[in-house]
Computed example of a mutant assay.
Amino acid sequence: MSDRPTTAYKVLTAEQMATLEQGSFAGAPIDLADGYIHLSTAAQLTETVDKHFAGQSDLHVAAVDLGALGDAVKWEESRGGQLFPHLYGGPLLLETVIAYGPLTRADDDSVALPVAG
């Protein structure tokens, strides 16, 4: 039994979100360059947004069911030695997304997680 999260998050621009809503998203330029789709856990999400999306507006967050992705998810060391979920071998499918919405911040300035609705 793993103590790893069962949900990860993908930060998307409005254009990327529109692509995902059509059924699948092949990845952002950095994903395509690295050969996998970068995801973050809930605990990593705010730092990811602050570091890689600073100053950008009209961002969206998609909650991804890691169980639905199976062995395509690899946990790999990245920023500060943390293990990040990376999706290999194909696009992010809308059917594996359990919630999504515009990026908003909570009162403590952390990124609010999308809620299925």
Score class of each variant (00 low, 15 high):
19 T>K: 12
83 L>P: 09
46 T>G: 12
30 I>L: 14
39 L>G: 14
56 Q>V: 12
71 D>V: 04
7 T>E: 00
46 T>C: 14
18 A>Q: 13
36 Y>N: 14
10 K>M: 03
35 G>V: 02
70 G>C: 15
50 D>W: 03
50 D>Q: 09
4 R>V: 12
82 Q>I: 10
51 K>Y: 13
30 I>G: 06
69 L>K: 01
13 T>K: 07
35 G>D: 08
34 D>W: 12
14 A>R: 13
45 L>V: 01
46 T>Y: 00
26 A>L: 11
79 R>H: 12
58 D>Y: 09
46 T>R: 02
36 Y>I: 03
44 Q>K: 07
10 K>A: 03
67 G>D: 06
63 A>Q: 04
65 D>V: 01
35 G>E: 06
42 A>I: 03
32 L>D: 15
11 V>R: 01
42 A>V: 03
20 L>S: 02
69 L>N: 01
32 L>V: 15
55 G>Q: 14
43 A>S: 11
47 E>T: 07
41 T>P: 08
85 P>Q: 01
63 A>T: 00
14 A>F: 03
78 S>G: 13
37 I>L: 12
64 V>K: 00
8 A>I: 00
80 G>S: 11
56 Q>R: 12
9 Y>W: 03
48 T>Q: 08
26 A>Y: 13
10 K>V: 02
58 D>H: 10
84 F>Y: 15
25 F>L: 05
56 Q>N: 10
60 H>S: 03
56 Q>D: 09
3 D>G: 15
40 S>N: 10
43 A>R: 05
60 H>E: 05
65 D>T: 01
